[in-house]
Nucleic acid binder design. Structure first.
Lengths: 147, 147
DNA sequence: CCTTAACAAGACAAAGTTATCCAGTTTGGT
DNA sequence: ACCAAACTGGATAACTTTGTCTTGTTAAGG
């Protein structure tokens, strides 16, 4: 459910939010988020199909967010690349169960619902603004003498 | 996170709980839970390794629960076959983050924690006793004339 | 118009998951 | 002892996910 692809997509989106509204190249994102760049480009294409990203090619091109970070939730990102699978009907196809989930699947879907809820309640801006600890994905800027 | 294997394992455990403390053959479980029997036997071996099941071979053998259904949680079953992956340290291996999760991964792990919590709070007996709707996994017994 | 930076798209490879099959081994009953 | 019912373990196959590579296509700038 939190697949590698989802993890990569979230890293990329956070990184872009951090630099919003500026564009970043795929390569820049790959380095910053430690994602294999060739694979990242596939993931980004998924995010573009979901209309979360704008990709421009050619010199000076790159990747940018379509909407500001406070209008994009974690759930949006997850659903763009690997949609959260809710259990909507009996996986055993029991006719008598139909749309009503049995107690087992009811519980499993409740768990999925809580994840969906949590993801829907956090925007990328929320994540960036989180006062808790460190900057998402980033080492704190090193204080260098020559700067 | 709720992989096919986990789904199968839970179906088998619920089925066994339903018949506890009697044993069932792998084939009986496979038919009742609509799981491919050859694969089910692998899944059951995982549950045995986790000491949730007792498998006996030979005539009259079969699969039985090691503990009563009210002492086995959904989480026990999940962790036996495909352990729930909590995020315990920064996936980017940023030295500065170390054990502290950044706001992104903190949120992701919180979601995992809520799932873990939900799974830990339901025993197999709870699922069976659930008054909500239908019997877990089963079609209601059909009223046949000759019976 | 040519070069170069950048994304696009498809083929392909590696690894993990799911599923099948078969030749053993154990066990109870005759 | 033998037979038949059941699980065991290993090999293998199909499929999905993850990752790489190569060849295109787009766009800016001189």
């Amino acid at each position: 459910m939190i697949t590698q692809t989802v993890e990569y997509a979230l890293r990329a989106m956070i990184h872009l939010s951090h630099h919003a509204p500026d564009a970043q190249t795929t390569e820049q994102i790959a380095v910053a988020t430690k994602v294999p760049s060739a694979y990242l480009s596939k993931v980004l294409q998924g995010l573009r199909r979901a209309e979360l990203l704008h990709l421009r090619r050619g010199i000076g091109g790159g990747v940018s967010l379509v909407k500001p970070p406070d209008e994009i939730t974690i759930l949006d990102v997850v659903n763009a690349v690997d949609p959260l699978q809710r259990i909507v009907s009996c996986p055993l196809k029991l006719a008598s169960h139909g749309e009503k989930l049995c107690p087992l699947h009811r519980r499993m879907d409740d768990a999925m619902a809580s994840v969906e809820q949590a993801f829907a309640n956090s925007t990328l801006a929320d994540v960036l603004a989180d006062p808790s600890t460190s900057v998402p994905l980033c080492n704190p800027p090193k204080r260098k003498s020559g700067r």
